[in-house]
Design a protein around this nucleic acid. Structure first.
Length: 216
DNA sequence: CAGTCGATTCACT
DNA sequence: GTGAATCGACTGA
């Protein structure tokens, strides 16, 4: 049986490029999460690039640690981190290996398995909100630290791999927007490395970084 | 080893 | 628009 072109998994070479090339190219691609209850598929509408140890906004800024180790490894793998004591966020590691760059998957449109996603996203008021935001996306797709380091590049799209990326249907170039990264402060705030599809209702709202008030 | 805070989200005013 | 939730990683002493 021949799979249609847009169901073809993206090869590792796709990710083995500079992160600023990969990030906008991920828009419109299909993220597939194989769970025990069935597949959940999402069309990516919003991403953010984090460009290695030289990027003050990146987790890799202060070098390799126990948490960010996967970012320093080969491209085409998932970097999943836990934050705010509650949430997980999913990144895809980009090349070249050792540069510790990655793309944060911020939002998307659930195309398959919405019933499964709704069960995990009780507070979502409608299906546009199921994966509107990086932690919401991870929650909807049942992603946690057990997927940290998972290889997202496979030869065929089978349930064997927990997480894969298919070719999908990228938007025309004129529909790609970019601007400052959400919630990133300090010297990393100025880089316009957030990319999204224009006028897509699943894209999350921009919010500047706000330092938390000190504990009493 | 204690203090600080986060690539966020949600409930509430 | 504002503040709470919640905990592990990271930092600096």
């Amino acid at each position: 049986m021949i799979e249609s072109r847009d169901r073809t998994p993206l090869p590792r070479e796709f990710f083995d490029r500079p992160v600023l090339d990969v990030a906008p190219d991920l828009l419109g691609r299909t993220l597939v999460r194989h769970t025990a209850d069935g597949p959940i598929e999402l069309r990516l509408t919003e991403v953010e690039a984090y460009a290695g140890e030289a990027d003050p906004g990146s987790h890799a800024y202060r070098g390799r640690t126990a948490r960010n180790g996967v970012m320093f490894g080969p491209p085409g793998h998932a970097y999943v981190y836990f934050t705010y004591g509650m949430w997980h966020c999913l990144n895809l590691v980009c090349g070249p290996e050792g540069m510790a760059s990655g793309v944060l998957l911020r939002a998307g449109e659930i195309r398959v398995g919405a019933e499964l996603a709704r069960k995990r996203r009780i507070s979502a008021r409608n299906d546009k909100e199921l994966a509107k935001g990086p932690a919401r996306l991870a929650t909807a797709l049942d992603i946690d630290r057990t997927l940290d380091g998972a290889d997202v590049c496979v030869k065929r799209n089978t349930p064997d791999a927990p997480l894969t990326i298919l070719t999908g249907t990228p938007p025309p170039l004129e529909q790609v927007r970019n601007g400052p990264r959400t919630g990133v402060g300090g010297d990393g705030a100025d880089h316009p490395w957030r990319y999204w599809i224009a006028d897509d209702p699943t894209v999350s709202p921009y919010r500047p970084h706000v330092p938390r008030r000190r504990a009493t």
